[in-house]
C-alpha cells in the first residue's frame, strides 16, 4: 500500500509505502545431526512475516539554465518475525562449533546463541566467574546473547549535479543495527594482532569484578591474575566475553560510488561523425565507516552462502574491493 506525490513540476517528489508479507513454509537448507547419516536437508523452516515501511524523497533544489542539482533520499525499516516453526521452538540455521544462528519462535530471525562468560550476582554486583588461572569460565550450555542479524533501518541518499555536459553523482548507503560473526576478529585474537588484545599493555591484570566458585558452590572474590604467560589462551577464547566477543555490530556507512561523466556537445560530435560521445570515470565501494567495535571487516562480505545463512557473518573472508572504472561510450 503506498502513495506517490509530486509538486512544483516534479521539483519535489514524495513516496511512501507500507507492506505486510507473510511467508508460509519458508524453504531453507537446514543442518542435520550427522548421526542421521546426513549433514543437511532442504526442508520447510516455518512461517515468517515481514512488515515494513519505505519512504522516499526526491528534490531538485536548483534548476537554472545549464545547471541542475538533484538530491534523493530513502528510508526503509523492516520488522521481521518468526511466526511459527515446524513443531519446535528453535531451529539452527547456520553457524559452526560453539556459535550458531537460530530461528526462534516469536522473535526476529537469526538469533545468536553460543557459550558466553558465566556471570553471577556477588554482593549485588554482576561478576564474571573465573577459573583457577584467572580466565573466564564459559557457560556449559549455549545461551542466547540478545543479538540478532536484523538491521534496525537503512537510509540511502544520492545526488546528481550536472552542468552543460558534465555530470557528477554520488550515492551514500547507511545501514544501522544488527550483528554478525567475524572470524577475522576471532583469528586476530588467536594470533594477537587485534588492537584489543593488548589490555593493560600485556602486563599482568585481574579481570574486574571477578569471582571464583568454591567447592561448596558459593563464590568468593578472585585474586588470581590472568596468567601473563598464557595470554594466548585468554584472548583466543574471546577475552572477557567468550564467544560473545566475536559477534560484532554490522552497522556501516558506505559511500557506494562516485562518478563523473562528460558528454561531448552535439556540435563537436557531428564533426567526428558520431551521434554522441561520453567519457566517464567511476569509483565503486569507495569509502566505508564502521562503528568502533568493528575494526576488522566490511559487513557486506560473507562466506556462508547466499541465503538466510549468509547473514551469519564471515569465516576469514577476503576484504572487499574498491573498483575503479573508466568508460568511453560511442553512439553512432
Amino acid at each position: 500500500m503506498g502513495a506517490e506525490l509530486s509538486f512544483l513540476k516534479n521539483r519535489i517528489g514524495f513516496e511512501v509505502s507500507y507492506y505486510n508479507r507473510y511467508t508460509k513454509g519458508l524453504l531453507e537448507l537446514l543442518p542435520s545431526d550427522p548421526s542421521t547419516g546426513y549433514t543437511q536437508r532442504m526442508a520447510n523452516l516455518g512461517d515468517v512475516s515481514n512488515k515494513g515501511v519505505e519512504i522516499a524523497l526526491n528534490l531538485v533544489p536548483v534548476k537554472i539554465a545549464d545547471f541542475t542539482w538533484s538530491v534523493s533520499a530513502n528510508f526503509s525499516k523492516n520488522y521481521n518475525m518468526v511466526e511459527s516453526l515446524e513443531g519446535v521452538d528453535e531451529i539452527l540455521i547456520d553457524g559452526y562449533g560453539g556459535l550458531g544462528m537460530y530461528a526462534v519462535k516469536g522473535k526476529p530471525m537469526g538469533q545468536f546463541k553460543g557459550q558466553i562468560a558465566q556471570k553471577v550476582l556477588y554482593n549485588g554486583v554482576e561478576s564474571t566467574v573465573v577459573d583457577g588461572k584467572g580466565n573466564p569460565v564459559p557457560t556449559p550450555d549455549e545461551q542466547f546473547m540478545s543479538k540478532d542479524i536484523n538491521e534496525k533501518f537503512r537510509i540511502g541518499a544520492s545526488t546528481i549535479i550536472s552542468w552543460k555536459g558534465l555530470s557528477l553523482s554520488a550515492t551514500l548507503d547507511w545501514r544501522y543495527g544488527g550483528y554478525m560473526f567475524s572470524y577475522t576478529k576471532d583469528y586476530m585474537n588467536w594470533v594477537g594482532s587485534d588492537i584489543y588484545s593488548v589490555m593493560n599493555n600485556r602486563y599482568p591484570f585481574l579481570i574486574p569484578n571477578s569471582v571464583v566458585q568454591n567447592a561448596d558452590g558459593t563464590y568468593s572474590e578472585n585474586s588470581v591474575q590472568v596468567d601473563p604467560t598464557a595470554l594466548h589462551t585468554f584472548y583466543s577464547n574471546g577475552g572477557l566475553q567468550y564467544a560473545d566477543a566475536n559477534v560484532i555490530d554490522r552497522s556501516y556507512l558506505k559511500l557506494r560510488d562516485i562518478s563523473l561523466s562528460y558528454d561531448l556537445p552535439k556540435s563537436i560530435c557531428k564533426k567526428i561523425r558520431l551521434e554522441g560521445l561520453r567519457v566517464s570515470v567511476n569509483a565503486g565501494n569507495f569509502l566505508l565507516w564502521t562503528p568502533q567495535e568493528n575494526q576488522y571487516i566490511d559487513p557486506e562480505t560473507t562466506t556462508f552462502g547466499n541465503d538466510v545463512g549468509a547473514k551469519f557473518g564471515e569465516f576469514g573472508v577476503n576484504p572487499s574491493y574498491h573498483t575503479y572504472t573508466f568508460g568511453l561510450n560511442f553512439t553512432f
Binding site: 543442518p31 545431526d33 550427522p34 548421526s35 549433514t39 519446535v88 553457524g95 550458531g100 577459573d131 549455549e142
Partner: peptide, 26 residues
C-alpha cells in the same frame, strides 16, 4: 587444575549433534 589431577577419558559430544538433535542429552 582443570581436571583436578584426572586424565582425559573421552571427548565431549560434538556441537553438531547436541544443537541439531532434540533427543540429545546435555
Amino acid at each position: 587444575a582443570l581436571l583436578n589431577a584426572q586424565l582425559p577419558a573421552s571427548p565431549q559430544y560434538p556441537a553438531s549433534v547436541l544443537t541439531r538433535n532434540s533427543n540429545a542429552p546435555g
